[in-house]
Computed example of a mutant assay.
Amino acid sequence: MTDILVTGGTGTLGRLVTERLRTDGHEVRVLSRHSPPYAVDLRENGGGLDAALGGVETVVHCATSPRGGDERAASNLVAAARRAGVAHLVYISIVGVDRVPYGYYRSKLAVERTVEESGIGWTVLRATQFHDLVAQVLQALAKAPVLPLPAGIRDQPVEVAEVADRLAALAAGAPAGRVADMGGPEVRTFESLARAYLRVTGRRRAVVKVPLAGKTYRAFRAGGHLAPGRAVGTGTFEEYLAARFGDGEDGRRG
């Protein structure tokens, strides 16, 4: 079986990718900023990266931060992967990074290009937003008595475990270039997702749709982040909510 390094291997996606690969019999190393024995901050190109990559055939690059530094981290990883003779670099990106002029998306697109131009065999998978992120956003918005939503926005959330399965399968195979996008099973209005969240969590909030301005908002309204032709996920947002929040007091377990 293949020796594989997963960057961001303690995160929401990376942890599940690691589990899938180990279940399939692969030797997996987890690289993250604070998790020994491969505690490395890719943005700083500190010591330990070469050791982490020694003998590794495939890298699954899940590490990311909306706060910045992804491009520098990717450059450092690619340089070290070249030195180590890595044969396959797999990267998880986001649907719409080439259509929505949002800073984080632009950074993800730049990382895609770094991977493609690395000289290493590569695979890039773009997925729509995870259920977890949508719930996190709604949880933050619902802290106020009124829940404000950007008007006219739709989303297509996907179950992170399904993306992990796909990413693990790609990592176990040969470099495939840019593969087909992976979207959730339904394109939904953000309002319908918000109301589903409120129902399950037992929160009562007035929902107010707020029109915004700017190129990024227009691109989201136009559905640049959606993949309706690739609605291959099966887990719905309601199923995710039921599994996460259950039927306890105020819609939450414990």
Rank of each mutant, 00 (worst) to 15 (best):
T2A: 13
T2Q: 09
L5T: 14
T7W: 03
G9I: 04
T10C: 11
L13F: 02
R15H: 06
L16E: 13
T18A: 06
T18H: 00
R20M: 01
R20W: 05
T23Q: 11
D24K: 08
G25K: 05
V28H: 15
H34A: 14
S35T: 14
P36G: 00
A39C: 01
N45G: 12
G46T: 07
A52Y: 00
L53V: 03
L53R: 01
G54K: 13
G55E: 02
V56E: 04
E57C: 00
T58D: 01
C62T: 13
A63D: 01
S65W: 01
P66T: 07
P66F: 07
R67Y: 09
D70V: 04
A74D: 00
N76W: 04
V78R: 03
V78P: 00
V78W: 03
A80P: 01
A84S: 13
G85R: 02
G85P: 06
L89I: 04
S93E: 10
G96Y: 05
G96R: 05
V100D: 11
P101C: 05
G103K: 11
Y104K: 04
K108V: 02
V111A: 04
E117V: 03
G121W: 08
G121C: 13
T123H: 14
T123N: 10
T123C: 15
L125E: 09
R126F: 14
A127R: 10
D132V: 12
V134D: 09
A135N: 11
V137E: 12
A142D: 11
K143Y: 08
A144V: 12
P150Q: 04
D155R: 12
Q156T: 05
V160K: 06
V163K: 06
A164I: 05
A164R: 01
D165H: 05
R166D: 07
L167Y: 02
A168T: 03
A172E: 14
A174T: 12
P175T: 02
A176I: 09
A176W: 09
P185A: 04
V187C: 12
R188W: 13
T189N: 10
S192E: 15
R195I: 04
A196S: 15
Y197S: 10
L198F: 05
L198W: 12
R199Y: 08
V200F: 00
R203W: 06
R204L: 10
R205E: 02
V207G: 10
V208H: 07
K209F: 00
K209G: 15
K209Q: 15
G214F: 08
G214E: 12
R218M: 12
G223M: 08
G224K: 09
L226N: 13
A227S: 15
R244C: 02
F245V: 06
D247K: 14
G248N: 05
G251Q: 11
R252C: 08
